[in-house]
Amino acid sequence: MCTGKCAFCVGTSLYPLAVISIICNIMLFFPGWDVKYVQNGQITPEVKYMGGLVGGGILVLIPAFHIHLTGKQGCCANRCGMFLSILFAAVGVVGALYSFIVAVMGLIHGPYCKHLLVLWGTPFKDKEPSYLKDRSTWGTCIEPNNVVEFNVGLFSTLLVTSALQLILCASQMINGLFGCLCGTCKQKEKGPL
């Protein structure tokens, strides 16, 4: 496959992944579908790091634009464009990695919730075995309603999304290197015989 077509595919694939990351991060601010928890500061600490919004969102969306435009110029872009796509893809790798790490930490530590009728905190943090393996412990969180399922679902989505972004951006770095070193596969137009 041509390096330009590959860049075009990578760029267009990153758009929906970045949008999913942004939406998941925004949704995490409203556990139980209520604004009172964010107003009272009663949200999971990893949500405040905005891994999906900043890392998997903005830091992937900007490279997606450039990578997409690099591949849009016919079959392949020029060597300079491919070199720049390596740099932009590296920014995407950093953003996806940040989102991935925040999602992993959010899953490991568990949600911030009301437990033991009056206490607010992260009851699953540093507990063995992990709450992820024992679903019967999820009822420990009383408020917000279904917060464990909410956090697990959204942080898992961020985890998968950022892993895909990481793979795509890393593959674009390799693709950009080939396009930069070996040249593009742009075919010369044939004149009249």
Rank of each mutant, 00 (worst) to 15 (best):
G51M: 06
C9Y: 05
A18C: 13
F29P: 00
V38P: 00
G55D: 09
A64T: 10
I62M: 10
L17A: 04
V38N: 05
M27C: 14
T12Y: 09
C24W: 01
K72Q: 10
N40Q: 15
T12D: 11
G74Y: 04
I62Q: 03
A64P: 10
A18D: 03
N25G: 07
L17D: 02
V35R: 11
Q39T: 07
L28Q: 06
V54S: 02
M27S: 15
G56W: 13
L61C: 11
A64H: 06
L53M: 14
P45T: 07
F65H: 11
P63Q: 09
K36D: 07
L59C: 15
D34V: 01
G57W: 03
C9A: 10
I43W: 03
S13P: 10
M50I: 08
Y37P: 00
V38I: 14
G74C: 07
F8Y: 08
F65V: 11
L17N: 06
G56I: 12
G51A: 08
N25K: 00
V47Q: 00
C9Q: 07
V10D: 00
Q39C: 03
I20V: 15
V38E: 03
Q39H: 00
V60N: 14
Y49A: 15
A7M: 12
V54I: 15
L53R: 02
T70L: 13
G32P: 01
V19Y: 05
H68S: 13
G51I: 06
G52E: 06
G56Q: 11
N25Y: 01
Y37W: 02
L69Q: 14
A7T: 08
A64W: 07
M50C: 12
C24K: 01
L17P: 01
Y49M: 15
L69R: 14
T70R: 04
L69E: 13
G52S: 08
V47Y: 02
Q39A: 08
V35K: 08
A7R: 04
C24M: 09
Y37Q: 01
I62C: 04
M50W: 07
S13H: 11
T12V: 15
G11M: 00
G74L: 09
T12N: 12
H66R: 07
N25Q: 06
P16T: 11
G51Q: 07
L14D: 00
Q73D: 06
M50Y: 07
E46T: 14
G57T: 03
D34R: 08
H66F: 15
L28D: 05
T12Q: 09
H66P: 00
C76H: 06
S21K: 01
E46Q: 15
K72I: 02
V19D: 02
P45K: 09
L61P: 03
G71N: 08
H68V: 06
I67Y: 01
V54D: 03
G71V: 09
V47S: 01
P63V: 11
F29R: 12
